[in-house]
Simulated assay, not measured.
Amino acid sequence: MRHAAPRTPAPHSAARAAVSGFAGLLDLALGDHCAGCARPGGRLCPSCARALRTPARPCRRRPGCPPVWAAGGYSGLERTVLLAFKERSARGLARPLGARLGGAVAAAAGHRDALLVPVPARPAALRRRGYDPVLLLARAAARASSTARMPGAPVLAHRRRVGDQVGLDRDRRRDNLTGALAVRDPAALAGRRVVVVDDVVTTGATLAEAVRALRDAGAAVVGGAVLAERR
């Protein structure tokens, strides 16, 4: 009886598997160390957790954006912990970071009921990471909130390819994103109070495109909430 020869994995599949395996080993190696200071004691030690308990603050106004609130800045400890969550597969940070984001969500919503709509990850970034960081943050923020709610299904979707925003200035970011997002089910959003959620706001181009798509669908976008404002 002849046996089929084992298939050789495609190069890109093998590369993804290698990256995923390395990330898993790194996660095990660092799992008992704080993402902020690297001291033993869990994903986020009490000292770093206290340092991150800052009140939400209003961001400077950006073209096309509603009032946006940030849980903090994008430097030092705040940046280190956020990058660990996004780039080092530290998914366990979603809960404390989401709770921190909750303050910005409440301020953006005016402490009234609102639907949280996370900015969706680019497909390439989603494949690379294996998860959507902003979606996890929004879910955690909703669980920590008494007024904010997550929709039952994804609201926004990419309808065309978008390049990486890193290194682009404001105008090029805007051109890169214009018309990139669409609402999956416009009828479900008509008249709903919405807060757009993202991890970092820089020029505001990403938030502005999300707001454009949501308002075109009839949603009442009352604000935006982010973990960090990058000035």
Rank of each mutant, 00 (worst) to 15 (best):
R43F: 02
L126V: 04
G31M: 04
G224H: 10
G24E: 12
Y74N: 02
A4I: 06
G98C: 12
R39V: 14
A14C: 01
A210E: 05
F22P: 00
D216V: 07
T206P: 05
V195T: 03
A114C: 15
A187S: 13
E78N: 00
G31E: 05
R127L: 15
A71V: 07
G218P: 08
G204D: 01
V194E: 08
A5V: 02
P66I: 09
P11D: 02
V155F: 07
H3G: 11
L30P: 00
A180Q: 08
R79T: 08
L82D: 02
P46S: 11
V197S: 03
A49C: 04
V195R: 02
V222C: 14
C48P: 06
D185V: 11
A35S: 15
K86N: 04
R161D: 12
V201R: 05
R88Y: 13
L97N: 07
A70Y: 10
G103S: 06
L30R: 12
D171Y: 04
S20Y: 01
A157N: 00
C37K: 03
T178A: 13
A109Q: 04
A15Q: 13
A70S: 15
V68Y: 02
V117Q: 08
R61W: 07
L28G: 05
R62E: 01
P186R: 05
R39A: 15
P63H: 06
A141T: 11
T147R: 11
G64V: 10
L77F: 07
L26K: 05
A15L: 15
R95Y: 00
V183C: 01
G224V: 10
P118E: 10
A106K: 01
A125W: 04
Q165I: 06
G163N: 06
P11L: 14
R139P: 00
L93V: 01
A17L: 15
G110W: 13
L189R: 04
L137S: 06
T147Q: 12
P118C: 09
R53W: 03
H3E: 13
R231S: 12
L97G: 02
R230P: 00
A140H: 10
G179A: 12
R128Q: 13
S145P: 08
R212Y: 01
G204V: 11
R212Q: 07
P11V: 14
T202A: 10
A148F: 10
R149H: 06
E78I: 02
S75Y: 03
L115F: 06
R91V: 13
D27Q: 07
P133H: 15
A219Q: 08
A124W: 09
L25N: 00
R57L: 15
L101Q: 07
A70N: 09
R88L: 13
F85L: 01
G167Q: 06
A190I: 12
V226H: 10
R212P: 01
A104H: 11
R112Q: 14
R95V: 14
A94N: 03
L77G: 05
G163D: 14
G73W: 09
P151N: 10
G72V: 11
D216H: 11
A213V: 00
L44F: 08
R128E: 14
P11S: 01
R43Y: 00
D169G: 15
